Computed example of a mutant assay.
Amino acid sequence: MQWKLKLTVLAGVTVAAGAVCAQEQLVRIGHAAPLSGPQAHYGRDNENGARMAIEELNAQGITIGGKKIRFELQAEDDAADPKQGAAVAQKLCDSKVAGVVGHLNSGTTIPASKIYHDCAIPMVTGSATNPNLTKPGYKTTFRIIASDSALGAGLAVYAADTLRLRTVAVIDDRTAYGQGVADVFKKTAIAKGIKVVDEQFTTDKATDFMAILTAVKAKNPDAVFYGGMDPQGGPMLRQMEQLGMGHMTFLGGDGICTSEIVKLSGGAKTLNNVVCAEGAAPLAKMPGGTGWKTRFDAKYPGLYQIYAPYTYDATQLLVDAMKRADSVDPKVYLNELAKSHFQGVTATIAFEANGEMKNPPFTLYHFKDGKKTPM
């Protein structure tokens, strides 16, 4: 009798536990960024921001549609390559993720956005800044950072009105991001009366810039604008110093506006000449920036780069829309995502009809005593 009683009780407990487990639903959120190659430090930063949000959301015990939800991040490596980015986007679609945070680069995000549109999965980027991203009008595409239209133009206005620069050379890496921000800067600079005395091109894989910098030096501009990322910006600063170009201002967008460029420039004095733009308020002035940074540093000490707070907000934003729609189905919660008025760490996030963030702030930075400092 005792054995039968114990078996009956055990069976009852097992059935009850099974019923509880059956009510838990796994929801995957995709993340895409370069996790290999020279831009991996950006990608890991983005992934860490999204992963931190997932862990905090799971700790809340969220219930949606009558089921307890357990979120999981499906992180994929797009290697900052458009073709691999498209393949990753299709993989995330095939995996039926509920939403996507990313991609990092405009060159991968733009082609991926069509794939997400075709499979009806919302994507939120906190780092891809090329204005062309939202031009197709896909209802699944959202950006929570200022575009290059703001960053490139803002730098040109500062160069003309505050620095009183008369001449500039423009270099870009021919990527969607680099060329895009350089084009906006160039057009605005010309409109503000700055003469573009030289234009040069490189790639996002290059490390030797001596030839193009020598050509730039011959034109003796007041400044160099670089459209690209820090794996090239850092060595470029070092080589500018070697060529005696230490008197020139070095301008660039958020791609060079990182702490990593301090290391990549190898202690070059030209770092003191950098003025760069980032598409948000400084961390200390973000609504939740200081507290978020404390938690992030405790979890990922010494790894913060630039975009992690945006990927954190993007992940929270997707889940907030799911909660308001009481559904994790992308087709159901998409309308709520478009209507968001979400108080994030970075800002209060709301969208224009084309998926651009309403009134995005941006900040200019320089490097003081080797530290990135808002101006």
Rank of each mutant, 00 (worst) to 15 (best):
M123F: 07
A169T: 10
K205H: 00
G193S: 06
F142P: 03
I194K: 02
Q179M: 11
T140V: 13
L165M: 09
A206E: 03
A176T: 15
A146G: 14
A146D: 13
K187C: 05
V124T: 04
V168H: 00
I171K: 01
G126E: 05
A160N: 08
I115L: 04
I145P: 11
A160Q: 08
A120V: 12
K135T: 15
T207D: 00
K205E: 01
D118E: 11
G137K: 06
T134L: 14
R166M: 06
A146T: 05
A189F: 06
T129F: 04
V124Y: 01
M210N: 00
K205R: 03
Q179Y: 08
G137M: 09
I121L: 03
A169Y: 02
V184R: 03
V170S: 03
G152S: 06
R174M: 12
T207M: 00
K186W: 06
T188S: 04
T134C: 10
A150W: 14
D172L: 04
V168W: 00
V196P: 05
S147L: 15
A159D: 07
I194Q: 02
P131M: 11
Y158P: 11
S147W: 10
A206L: 01
V184K: 04
D204N: 08
V181E: 04
I190Q: 12
V170M: 05
T129E: 03
A156H: 09
T140H: 11
N130T: 06
F209A: 00
V196D: 01
L155R: 04
C119I: 02
K205C: 00
K205D: 00
V170K: 01
D208W: 00
D183G: 10
F201K: 12
T167N: 02
T125S: 09
Q179L: 12
T202C: 01
D161F: 02
K205A: 03
V196E: 01
F185W: 06
K186R: 14
H117W: 05
R164H: 15
A191N: 09
V184P: 07
R164P: 07
A150Y: 15
K186Y: 05
C119H: 02
L163G: 04
A156Y: 08
H117N: 13
I121V: 14
C119G: 04
G178C: 07
